[in-house]
Design a protein around this nucleic acid. Structure first.
Length: 475
RNA sequence: CGGGAUGUAGCCUAGUGGCUAAGGCGCCUGCUUUGGGAGCAGGAGAUCGGAGGUUCAAAUCCUCUCAUCCCGACCA
């Protein structure tokens, strides 16, 4: 008997760890807070990269690469930025056997080094916009780490764009937020709320931070991607100006936006179950697995038959043929369920007799008999079904665990029992935000774009409030 | 960084001062099996997280240290 996966209702954190380790997505590394992304985890990341990168290219961006080492003085140029990041940075002080004259920071994010370069590259409005993305690793010295969700080193992409006008930069910020929303919903099958972050939750150095916010199966919120309007802060810090058409000098407007390997953690916590990983078809590195079921006497015949099925499927789907002789079919079923492969094709003597195969979908476990001649077509429908129903299930779950609440006592009770998302009005004061965080451990996850017609009263102080926001406990 | 827990073979666990550190899973060999984690036989694998100390004697007691997990504070 292999190790069991801790059921979600017993211990959600442990369940998550069990999935990551047993599906062999990642492993702990010898270095505190770091992880090794194993081939199956990395295959997922490559799939995510490939799709999102295509979306970046479609919206006019190019990839580039900037160094991991950043001079200390650069980090310190933007006041809020340094305040936000300096405490969690690792710094190289020695190299080549000598102490460095100026310490070099391992990048926690690349705004500063990139804007030092933009200063060299931008002189005129003709040089704008610059639309650059980089795929990179970054390092943040976190106190408390969790596989994929928060590690000391993680992989991400960071887009950094430079624009002539504020309007253009804001437009870019929202465009990329929508790219993230589209990716989350159409590929990851995870519904997300979009909107702005409150002052206290925004990125250090941003004017405005926008977020895609998802609900996990334990009803906690998770920020899955952010897009920042940086205004002219970094342009001013690095003195990046351009000459306008009519000869004036103006500071450049900036955006930055990113998603990370955290998306893999998000994916796990949104869809997986007590049997293991559940991967939406559009992100599955392996879409179909074929398992021949034979006895010693009929092995050759069954494997032959299964192989023909494999031949007919593999052109259309990323397919694995598991004819390993050492493990029983039951063992294989369990194993491929842990790995989260969306569709399993069982091929045994019974199926062979009827010129059929058995299809089993990972999300519901539902079995269907289908003629070999129709198998590719049927898998196509199944894949679409799984993709859609994962999304709908997550959407229903979020809806069922979201409540408008206007009374603070009711709010407290809500989070003492079930919890979830609370839609409540907020007057905008950081005092009220701070108080509700202290008293209920909830934070403002997002100030949604979609606002009710009528204003209300602040959930905390009862004063008139223009904005309705979403409160939740968060990762 | 505070509070708690844990660390014994690849994994899970027993052993709470005394003989050669025990068992299950996994792994290797062979045979038999195979429609939901198969069976039998044989075998390999551990300086008990690390360092120091107490003792005739330490996995076991003490000190320090490291790592992981859980709960907080801080963060993508």
């Amino acid at each position: 008997m292999a190790e069991r996966i801790t059921p979600r209702h017993e211990n959600y954190s442990q369940w998550y760890i069990d999935i990551v380790l047993q599906a062999k997505l990642a492993d702990y590394s010898p270095v505190k807070g770091c992880m090794v992304i194993r081939p199956r985890g990395y295959a997922l990341w490559e799939k995510i990269q490939q799709i999102i990168d295509g979306m970046f290219k479609e919206t006019g961006h190019s990839n580039a690469y900037f160094p991991i080492l950043i001079p200390e003085s650069f980090i310190q140029k933007e006041a809020e930025h340094v305040e936000g990041f300096a405490p969690e940075c690792a710094v190289v002080t020695h190299a080549g056997g000598e102490e460095l004259e100026e310490p070099l920071f391992l990048r926690p994010t690349s705004e500063t080094i990139i804007w030092s370069m933009y200063k060299k590259w931008i002189q005129s409005y003709r040089d704008l916009p610059i639309l650059i993305n980089q795929w990179a690793n970054v390092l943040r010295w976190e106190k408390r780490t969790r596989l994929f969700l928060r590690t000391t080193e993680f992989l991400w992409q960071e887009g950094h764009t430079a624009h002539a006008t504020s309007e253009e930069a804001v437009e870019e910020t929202l465009r990329m937020l929508n790219v993230y929303k589209k990716f989350a919903e159409e590929y990851m099958a995870i519904p997300v709320l979009t909107g702005k972050k409150s002052e206290s939750e925004k990125f250090a150095g941003a004017v405005d931070t926008y977020t895609i916010e998802a609900m996990m199966q334990d009803k906690k919120a998770l920020q899955a991607g952010t897009s920042h309007f940086l205004g002219q802060k970094f342009a001013k810090a690095f003195d990046v100006t351009y000459q306008t058409r009519d000869g004036n000098l103006e500071y450049v407007w900036a955006t930055s936006w990113g998603v990370s390997t955290r998306l893999i953690g998000t994916l796990i916590m949104a869809h997986s179950d007590d049997k293991g990983l559940v991967i939406p078809p559009k992100l599955a590195p392996t879409e179909v697995v074929i398992i021949p079921i034979y006895k010693t006497g009929n092995k050759v015949k069954v494997v032959d038959y299964a192989k023909r099925v494999y031949e007919s499927i593999k052109g259309s789907y990323s397919t694995e043929f598991d004819d390993d002789d050492q493990y029983s079919p039951g063992w294989k079923f369990t194993e491929w369920e842990i790995r989260g492969v969306p569709v399993r094709v069982e091929v045994g003597p019974k199926d062979m007799g009827a010129d059929e195969v058995t299809l089993v979908r990972r999300d519901t476990g539902e079995r269907t008999l289908v003629k070999v001649s129709q198998v590719v077509e049927k898998i196509k429908t199944l894949m679409e079904d799984i993709q859609n129903s994962l999304f709908l299930r997550a959407l229903e779950f979020r809806k069922g665990n979201t409540r408008p609440i206007s009374d603070y006592e009711e709010f407290k009770q809500y989070f003492e029992s079930d919890g979830g998302f609370a839609e409540s009005f907020w007057c905008g004061s950081s005092d009220c935000e701070e108080r509700i965080k202290e008293e209920t451990k909830t934070t403002i996850r997002v100030i949604p774009f979609n606002q009710p017609e009528k204003p209300g009263t602040c959930i905390v102080c009862g004063e008139k409030a223009e904005q309705q926001v979403v409160f939740a406990r968060a990762y």
